[in-house]
Design a protein around this nucleic acid. Structure first.
Lengths: 292, 292
DNA sequence: CGACTGGCATACCCGAAAGGTATACCGCCG
DNA sequence: CGGCGGTATACCTTTCGGGTATGCCAGTCG
């Protein structure tokens, strides 16, 4: 049902496949098998248009899927799981994409659970956890206390970020070797030592060596300033996409270990915390984070 | 969802598994994984009872499943597939179990399709097909015109049927060799030559030989008369179960080829005919006919 | 008018998940 | 306290959903 709706909304198989985070052939097959089982043609092909029966199907199917969602919510409510509060600490690398989406997902599916979110650098979050002020941590290569359990929400590669005036700004992909002699811009290590080490370790693993110039101002918001004239940064791909205009990001052709976004929580989590964990996992599947 | 409802209705995992035509362990696992995903316990175990949340789940899930059924019906209706008529010829071996169930399934899911059913022996049905009076044939080892297409709806083994006073009537299983010297009762070959040959061929394939006494009256309705004193019959298992009281049926321990129930139709079937074929296949899956 | 391109279909492969078999465990009853 | 009904656990098999490579066809443009 989701597939038919996606094809109808996207106006074609290829576009729908992308939206569903899958490829076109299995999608075509699933639709065709459904058509065989129903004995009814849902789409005219070439161009892809809904048939009369297809319109009917999409309309009813939307209702059924919505109701199915309701089932789990009502059940959770009946079990008394849908209340309480979660205190989340997150890093700046999640502040543009993942954290807002998770916040939205929790609000939509579990309005009864209150979320207290606090952005901070590695040391601040660690201190807050030690003080018992946080239940959950969300970040990339955060320092996490050993008594916490962890799951990976997203795995992705790095991209190179340069200013729009850079000589490579028009390229799709580069090797790090092409950047020899340039300066790698980074925030000071003390703000997020594990992440800092992970990125530089990954870069050095390719055999490349760079001068690292540590911008005294941490944060990603003033990139166009620091990259105006020269130098480059190395960031997870999803962050590269979120940057303001005047900035270009390039795929790296060298072999590099991927970077992981992790969710951590202390043992014996409250029902509200487990609900947040489940919701985050669902979100990751829906958004295709395990893949890209 | 179907699984949870089945467990709730059956009052236990084992009984529910039987109703679903599967075994208990995978059912238990599925339920447990659903409970994990929901973060909610649906059943108290030992004894198996619904929790409060479980009741909520069952209630909502019933509605969703019913609506999902509706989706396919509305779609078929919109495609204009749900009208027309099918003329079905069937043999007496299907008259107790399969044919009534198929009739009921068609009435429930496709009330717009009219069914004309005609019971008859092999030769009568063949003649009716030749005269263009039938669209579909349902039977066990019927003679089917070569231009018909065929699918297998059910595969099962044979049982031995004896009168209640027979010396073996209390037994669970027998070898055909234990019946040496007794008379195999059968209807005259001319009524259904292919079926007759299939059964006797299967029996002789075990190495056993019997006197065959052909009851001049065909039909299964007067069995208790013909089996009152002595003799036995060999029938497909599902027919053995349907017999009147005063009759016992026994599993055969010898190796014998199974007997198939087949559905046949002429090429280029009308939409109504393909609908009936699909419905029959669904029915066969639901009833577990491919297995038993 | 034919070569090109975009988009769906076809063929084949692989891994995850569903179902089956064998068996252990556990509460209940005699 | 031992047998029994019924659920859980361990392990294997099969099925199906998804991926990659490639074919095919309609519409378009040189």
């Amino acid at each position: 049902m989701r597939y038919v709706i996606a094809v109808a909304e996207a106006g074609g198989f290829e576009a729908a496949a992308e939206r569903l985070h899958m490829t076109q052939p299995p999608l075509s097959r699933q639709i065709r098998e459904l058509e065989r089982e129903l004995g009814v043609t849902l789409f005219h092909r070439r161009p892809t248009r809904l048939t009369e029966a297809g319109r009917e199907f999409v309309e009813s199917a939307r209702q059924v899927l919505a109701d199915a969602e309701q089932v789990v919510e009502r059940t959770r409510r009946a079990a008394g799981v849908d209340h309480g509060a979660v205190r989340v600490g997150y890093t700046v690398t999640t502040a543009f994409d993942e954290m807002p989406k998770m916040f939205a997902a929790m609000g939509a599916r579990h309005p009864g659970i209150r979320i207290e979110a606090r952005e901070g650098w590695d040391a601040e979050l660690t201190a807050a956890v030690a003080a018992g002020e946080l239940d959950v941590l969300l970040g990339r290569h955060l320092g996490v206390p050993p008594e916490f359990q962890t799951t990976v929400l997203r795995t992705e590669d790095f991209v190179v970020v340069v200013g729009a005036g850079h000589r490579l700004a028009g390229r799709e992909a580069v090797s790090l070797r092409e950047l020899r002699g340039e300066t790698l811009r980074f925030f000071p290590r003390r703000f997020a030592p594990h992440y800092h080490d992970a990125v530089l370790g990954a870069v050095r693993g390719t055999g490349a060596e760079f001068d690292v110039w540590e911008n005294p101002l941490p944060g990603l918001r003033n990139l166009n300033v620091s990259l105006r004239d020269s130098g480059f940064m190395v960031l997870p791909r999803s962050l590269g996409r979120q940057l303001p205009s005047g900035i270009a990001y390039l795929t790296i052709t060298d072999e590099m270990p991927p970077i992981e976004l992790r969710l951590s929580w202390q043992r014996n989590p409250s029902p509200a915390v487990t609900t947040l964990i489940r919701t985050a996992r669902r979100l990751a599947r829906r958004e295709g984070w395990s893949v890209s």
